[in-house]
Design a protein around this nucleic acid. Structure first.
Length: 156
DNA sequence: GCCAACGTTGGC
DNA sequence: GCCAACGTTGGC
């Protein structure tokens, strides 16, 4: 069975609508600058894995759509771009420190708000809901994935 | 290896 | 804008 993940994005930077408008409805997930999240991309994420696309740091945080991992982890070019806010001068060119992975839209859903997620007992175990969690990529269990789909409702 | 200082995240 | 939680840095 494919793995499941929740990936956070600030909609001001990359929203579910940006993903829908992207060529092949696919975006490279760049800008991850946390080792744990990078290691998920490098070691655990597989093409075909399911993704909950989560909007963070915005007026209505929550799950905004479903997506899928569309490739393998590869060096994130923004780390070598001095003009990028994600530039990392300490990353060796011959041994890139940061990775990205392609994410392809499955479909936009209704917004499953953070408030609604917190209110759902079936989602209480979700990593993203744990106090103090800041990871931008977190694993999602089969049960959590199914519970999210059930909450999204028919047609989701 | 410790740990204080600092920067970032992200909901509110 | 606030602030708590967390990760990273760097001096020692």
């Amino acid at each position: 069975m494919a793995g499941h993940w929740l990936m956070k994005s600030e909609p001001a930077e990359a929203s579910i609508d940006d993903l829908a408008r992207a060529p092949a409805q696919t975006l490279g997930w760049t800008g991850v600058r946390n080792y744990q999240a990078r290691n998920f991309m490098r070691d655990a994420m597989q093409p075909g894995d399911d993704v909950l696309f989560y909007h963070s740091s915005c007026a209505e945080p929550g799950i905004a759509g479903l997506a899928r991992i569309a490739g393998r982890a590869a060096p994130d070019a923004t780390q070598f771009d001095p003009a990028s806010p994600y530039h990392d001068p300490r990353s060796p060119a011959d041994k890139p420190r940061w990775l990205q992975i392609d994410v392809k839209l499955v479909r936009k859903t209704r917004l499953l708000s953070l408030r609604e997620m917190r209110a759902a007992p079936a989602l209480a175990t979700m990593r993203v809901l744990q106090p103090g969690n800041r990871l931008s990529i977190t694993p999602v269990s089969d049960a959590e994935w199914n519970a999210v789909l059930a909450l999204l409702g028919p047609g989701a």
